[in-house]
Amino acid sequence: MDISGSMRKLYKSGVVQNILERIYPLATKFDDDGSLDMWIFSHSFNKLSAVVEENFDTYIEAEILNKKPSSSWGRTEYAPVMEDVISTYKYSKIPAYVIFITDGQNSDKTKTKQALIEASNYPIFWQYVGIGFEEFEFLKRLDELKGRAIDNANFFQLNDIMSVSDEELYNRLLNEFPDWYKEIHKNS
């Protein structure tokens, strides 16, 4: 979850909490213990405590706004957090599905491309979600990035997540993941 300076208003207004509450049910279906691993990022990143049934409805206020993690409200870099996610899951026997939420462009495009290419060698799928009204040209290009061992990413944009039904949101979140999942199992 992006926590760069441009996201501050979305955190304080409750939009990010709403996003979390809407994606958490998906995590309970993917993870055998019903938890959602959480990273936040701007120019650096923090891995936070997991989102679980007991804390999902107050998570953003309790774990981010009240604690003020060191990565809060800086510029936007994707590669450092992506590299940490990769190191966490690259040897996992269970595929990882990463929902990567941001509202803007990053300043480390070359390193981000390298991280996505590296991740394509492991069982990690990246679902990039752009929130707001940015153009998201870079994320669109990541979705089509050449040089990957397998297509391990998808991107879609939500101008106003509050106006999208849960059904549409889940359809969009899972649009390419099933094909990727079949492909990695076919090749293993």
Score class of each variant (00 low, 15 high):
Asn175Leu: 05
Asn171Thr: 04
Thr76Val: 09
Lys90Val: 04
Phe156His: 14
Ser188Met: 06
Asp179Met: 13
Phe41His: 06
Leu174Asn: 04
Asp32Pro: 13
Arg8His: 08
Tyr59Ser: 10
Lys90Trp: 04
Pro178Arg: 02
Asn175Tyr: 09
Ala153Lys: 05
Arg8Glu: 14
Gln105Arg: 15
Asp103Tyr: 08
Asn175Ile: 05
Ser70Cys: 07
Asp37Tyr: 09
Trp126Met: 08
Arg172Trp: 03
Gln17Val: 11
Leu20Lys: 02
Ala62Leu: 11
Glu144Cys: 03
Asp166Cys: 00
Pro123Leu: 09
Leu142Gly: 06
Leu158Thr: 06
Asn18Ile: 00
Arg141Phe: 09
Asp160Phe: 09
Asp160Leu: 11
Lys12Arg: 13
Met7Gly: 01
Phe177Thr: 04
Ile117Thr: 07
Ser6Pro: 13
Ile124Met: 00
Asp37Leu: 11
Leu10Asn: 15
Leu65Thr: 06
Asp32Trp: 08
Asp32Thr: 15
Pro69Ile: 12
Ala115Arg: 06
Asn66Phe: 10
Ser6Cys: 08
Ser163Glu: 14
Met7Tyr: 02
Asn175Pro: 05
Ile150Asn: 09
His185Glu: 12
Thr110Gly: 13
Leu169Asn: 07
Asp32Gly: 14
Ile60Cys: 12
Tyr59Trp: 07
Pro25Cys: 01
Ala50Phe: 11
Ser120Phe: 05
Tyr11Ala: 06
Thr58Asp: 08
Val129Ser: 05
Glu61Asp: 13
Arg75Ala: 15
Glu176Lys: 06
Val52Trp: 00
Ile124Asn: 08
Ile184Phe: 07
Lys113Ile: 15
Ser72Ile: 14
Lys182Tyr: 12
Leu169Gly: 05
